[in-house]
């Protein structure tokens, strides 16, 4: 269809098949291709290649730097965590020490108090025993005197030794 239209419009038919222009087209095409090739190989391609390589390098460097920084950050975090753990352990140790000290103090105080109390109790017991002994003695004396009086009233004369023995026997047999 296109060929017909072209053929109707002009005598040579399709201009693409006009071989007289081939030499001209091929010549200028070769000139253009050589120009493009030279432009590309002399300037454009090395330049773009260099830029791409540089960008790749920059990106790689930046990534490496980021990796490095990340590592340092994690190291810092680890150090921080370690310090925190150390501090916790230290605090726990101090608390334990304080507790132990307090416990020891308490135990000592208790022991002292116990000792004091038992000393006082012993003292009191001793005093009680003394008082009791003196009371017994008083009772014995009173009993002996009373017995002597009773004997005298009943008209006898009491032998002191016999009285003593009799009162002692009674008191032994009948404890307070």
């Amino acid at each position: 269809m296109a060929t017909e239209a072209g053929g109707a419009a002009q005598s040579v038919g399709m201009p693409q098949l006009d071989f007289t222009t081939y030499g001209n087209q091929i010549f200028w095409l070769v000139v253009a291709l050589v120009a493009i090739y030279l432009l590309l190989t002399r300037i454009a391609l090395p330049r773009i290649g260099a830029v791409l390589a540089e960008r790749k390098g920059t990106v790689a460097n930046d990534l490496a730097a980021a990796e490095d920084l990340k590592e340092r950050a994690s190291a810092a975090e680890a150090a921080y965590q370690k310090a925190l753990a150390d501090a916790r352990a230290e605090a726990a140790r101090i608390i334990a020490e304080a507790k132990a000290e307090i416990q020891a103090d308490l135990a000592r105080a208790l022991a002292e108090a116990d000792a004091d109390i038992s000393a006082r109790a012993a003292e009191s017991e001793r005093r009680i025993a003394e008082i009791r002994a003196s009371a017994m003695q008083s009772v014995a004396e009173v009993a002996r005197d009373t017995a002597a009086e009773l004997v005298a009233v009943l008209g006898g004369s009491a032998d002191a030794a016999a009285l003593e023995a009799a009162v002692g026997a009674r008191m032994k047999g009948q404890p307070s």
Binding site: A5, A9, T21
Partner: peptide, 8 residues
Amino acid sequence: HPMDQFIV
């Protein structure tokens, strides 16, 4: 003339 555009 659709082919005229191709004339050298």
